[in-house]
């Protein structure tokens, strides 16, 4: 039931996300264009060539990017929450966000413009910064051969603070590039292209699928790492795989969309309220919900005249999250 609801929500978000915008396109025409171009159906065109171009070259890559990013962040968020056994964890908890932001700021400061794969320099450095910071956090928090979760969380916080200082310095030095850094920090999909999507989507989809297939390990972690081991989970291996995949999905997502908060935090919680903590249900449903929420947030951002999506998710997400916390008051024990 919930799964069907999620799929319907996603389909509605897809059509609405394509139909609405500065030039609005009738949902019927939207469906027609999608059916003709994507499914190869022989639908007689009732629309202009310009409309088709808007749908195929501007709206569709944008909406699909929002979907992939939203879904990926939600899956990564659910994985981090489960692994760290911390309901406040989000995809950025291990320093991904500040690493990406710092990378993007450096890209703005470098006077050379370069294209790496389909990425601009900014996206490429954001990706490298995100992955690099997680790697540093992981290495620094290692005690002997394992990294205890508390130490991972605290190291993540410390490294993030350091990177935030670097970011502040870069912004101070950036002069006219400041606006560009800010636009990245607030997040958005206005720079989405098929090319960028083609680079990021496989990373996010593969990483998310690997996480989805490891739902059993995440379930075992509910009672802590020792209990997980007693239930048959190879804790060290599974944790390494899940951390790597969640970080990869997050890095790819922030590289193409900037820093968009709350979706990765809220989507898994909403799903848990509906279906309980079983990761086999939480992960796929959070992906659907995260994808729909992100398309919706992007839609609102466009209708309000291209304001940053990160602002929309924060304005909607924060009060919503507060309401959620009050409802589930019985129980966040940390």
């Amino acid at each position: 039931m919930v799964a069907i609801g999620g799929l319907v929500l996603l389909a509605v978000a897809l059509v609405a996300g394509i139909a609405a915008g500065s030039v609005s396109i009738a949902p019927g025409e939207t469906l027609g264009i999608l059916a003709r171009r994507l499914l190869g159906l022989n639908v007689a065109p009732t629309w202009s060539v310009a409309t088709e171009t808007i749908v195929m070259d501007l709206r569709l890559p944008r909406v699909l990017t929002a979907m992939i990013v939203g879904g990926g962040l939600a899956v990564a968020g659910a994985a981090f929450q489960g692994l760290l056994r911390n309901p406040l964890a989000d995809p950025y908890v291990l320093g991904t966000a500040s690493g990406a932001a710092f990378g993007a700021a450096i890209a703005v400061l470098i006077p050379v413009r370069a294209l790496i794969l389909q990425f601009g320099l900014l996206h490429a450095l954001a990706f490298i910064g995100a992955l690099g910071s997680v790697l540093v956090v992981y290495r620094l928090s290692r005690i002997g051969s394992s990294a205890p979760m508390t130490s991972l969380l605290l190291t993540g916080y410390a490294v993030s603070s350091l990177l935030a200082a670097g970011l502040a310095m870069a912004m101070y030095l950036s002069g006219t590039g400041l606006r560009q850094i800010f636009a990245y920090l607030l997040g958005g999909f206005d720079s989405a292209t098929w090319g960028r999507l083609a680079v990021a989507a496989p990373l996010i989809l593969i990483a998310s699928s690997v996480i989805l297939l490891r739902a059993r390990s995440l379930n075992g972690m509910l009672l802590g790492e020792d209990a997980a081991a007693h239930l048959g989970v190879d804790v060290r291996r599974e944790r390494a795989i899940l951390l790597t995949m969640a970080s990869l999905a997050t890095a790819a997502a922030v590289a193409i969309s900037g820093l968009i908060g709350f979706v990765g935090l809220v989507a898994p919680h909403v799903v848990r309220l509906l279906v309980g903590p079983n990761a086999r249900l939480v992960l796929p449903l959070a992906a659907l919900l995260g994808a729909s929420l992100m398309v919706g947030a992007d839609l609102v951002a466009r209708l309000l005249g291209e304001i940053p999506v990160g602002v929309v998710t924060a304005v909607v997400g924060a009060p919503f999250f507060l309401a959620l916390l009050r409802r589930a008051r019985t129980g966040y024990e940390l």
């Binding site: 489960g82 309901p87 309980g276």
Partner: peptide
């Protein structure tokens, strides 16, 4: 152990079937 999320009694017992 402390559970991080709301978990029903039957969901906890079901964890025993993991292996």
């Amino acid at each position: 152990p402390l559970l991080p999320f709301a978990t029903t009694v039957e969901e906890v017992v079901a964890l025993g079937r993991l292996p």
